[in-house]
């Protein structure tokens, strides 16, 4: 299901009320001109699954969904670190992995694999 960025929280709250109580994963795909963020949800009682997709432009921020799904905590931090997506409204903003100099958003296509390596 593709939705607009502004409807994200409402849609997730709706899904949560509709029985999708388990967040499987949040991930993103870099399509160069835009990013697609995907929320994988599951209904634990009847094992149905639902993907919620949000298209965002480079530099757009997303709201935090920790208050709806607590499991989102690590995934959101991973997302903002790996894709450089700013997540608004988080209590803990410390990076999940450690930060290295000269590398930000390593999973974006703009980061070329091996380019950060410097020989002494």
């Amino acid at each position: 299901m593709k939705i607009e960025k502004d409807n994200l929280l409402d849609k997730l709250r709706e899904a949560r009320k509709g029985g999708f109580d388990y967040l499987v994963k949040i991930t993103a795909v870099d399509y160069l001109d835009h990013l697609e963020v995907i929320y994988f949800l599951r209904n634990m009682s009847n094992k149905k699954e639902e993907n919620i997709r949000v298209e965002i432009k480079n530099g757009d921020a997303l709201p935090s969904i920790v208050e709806i799904y607590k499991a989102a905590d690590f995934y959101e931090r991973e997302l903002s670190e790996m894709f450089g997506i700013e997540i608004l409204g988080r209590k803990i903003n410390r990076l999940l992995l450690e930060k290295w100099d000269g590398i930000d958003a390593p999973l974006r296509k703009s980061f070329v694999w091996g380019s950060a390596y410097k020989s002494d």
């Binding site: 109580d21 499987v24 607590k70």
Partner: peptide, 8 residues
């Protein structure tokens, strides 16, 4: 149980 589902 509920926390386990909530925390994923």
């Amino acid at each position: 149980r509920n926390d386990a589902i909530e925390l994923g």
